[in-house]
Amino acid sequence: MTQSSLTVGYVPGVTPAKWARTWAERHPDVPLKLRAVTAADGPAAVRDGIVDVALLRPSADTSGLSIIPLYEETTVAVVPTDHLLSAADEITAADLTDEPVLLPLDDVVAWAEAPSTAIDHRPETTEAAIELVAAGLGVLMVPQSLARLYHRRDLTYRPIAGAPTCPVALAFPAGQPSALVEEFTGIVRGRKPSSSRGQAQPTPKRTAREKTLAKQAARAAAGKVARKPDAPKRRRP
């Protein structure tokens, strides 16, 4: 590992803390730096070398990057706590047909055929859209992690049955990744320390001839020990 540190980018809602802790335990001499990036800017941050690797939502342009899918998030609808939709544990797409839905410019759900009433105004960010939901101006569809990130007492969220899930992936520049990026990828994917690619390779098996020569050498060594002269006997006085 020739790099002196590793910089990991992450988009809102993704929590890399557990992987950072594992890294610190396994590589205390190699600092891992976490850098927050927006969903839209995440891929460019990797391509431009601002971060070495990133945890992002691949709905953005990922050209020039190697993408490793990690998991899928449930899509939820954020509504005021006194909203009619909050009475159910889960809602359906049909429940949103007559609801005004806010679509922020940094939207990551990418549900083009969502059954809803469009709103002309598009908030710049998801965080700004949350404020409008609290003001009663509409419903917001987001990955569950973003609903938790921007939680407010006057808001709640419900999973949407039949809605597309929101993927999260690991991204790094296309081509052969560095040793540190490979190691971080292994940690994220749950690779155990004993199975790390950096571990020494097992000793190769010996050929039949090598085994024969080893046996002959062992017998020869045993013969030398057997022929070793006994210690002289003590004479009686």
Rank of each mutant, 00 (worst) to 15 (best):
H27G: 06
W19N: 02
P80H: 02
S86D: 06
V11F: 00
A163R: 08
K228Q: 15
A94T: 14
K224C: 01
Q216H: 04
P28E: 03
I68M: 00
A171P: 05
H83F: 09
E73G: 03
K33W: 06
E210P: 03
E131C: 05
A94V: 10
K192C: 12
P31C: 00
L96E: 14
L65V: 07
D29K: 09
A54I: 01
I160H: 12
A94P: 04
D95G: 09
L65I: 06
P16N: 11
V76Q: 01
L180D: 10
Q3T: 05
V181C: 07
G42D: 05
A200Q: 15
A222M: 13
T22C: 13
A222D: 14
R197L: 11
Y157A: 10
V139R: 01
E131H: 11
T125K: 09
E127H: 07
L56F: 01
Q199H: 06
T2V: 07
S4Y: 07
R153P: 10
I50R: 13
E127A: 08
A77V: 13
R235P: 15
S4A: 11
V108W: 00
D107V: 07
D106F: 00
G42E: 06
M1F: 11
E183G: 05
S66G: 09
E182H: 06
A17L: 08
R189P: 01
V188H: 01
V51H: 09
D154Q: 13
P28T: 04
E90A: 08
M141V: 12
K211C: 07
A94D: 15
W111N: 03
A77N: 06
H27L: 14
V46P: 09
T74G: 11
T125H: 13
P12Q: 03
S178K: 02
V181T: 12
L140K: 08
A169Y: 00
L140N: 10
G9R: 04
M1I: 04
D29C: 03
D230S: 13
P104I: 05
A200I: 13
P193G: 12
L55N: 09
K33Q: 14
G9Y: 03
H27A: 11
T97E: 08
S116Q: 07
A217H: 05
S116F: 15
S66T: 15
I160G: 12
Y71I: 00
V142Y: 01
A218I: 05
R206H: 13
S145H: 04
L105V: 13
S145I: 04
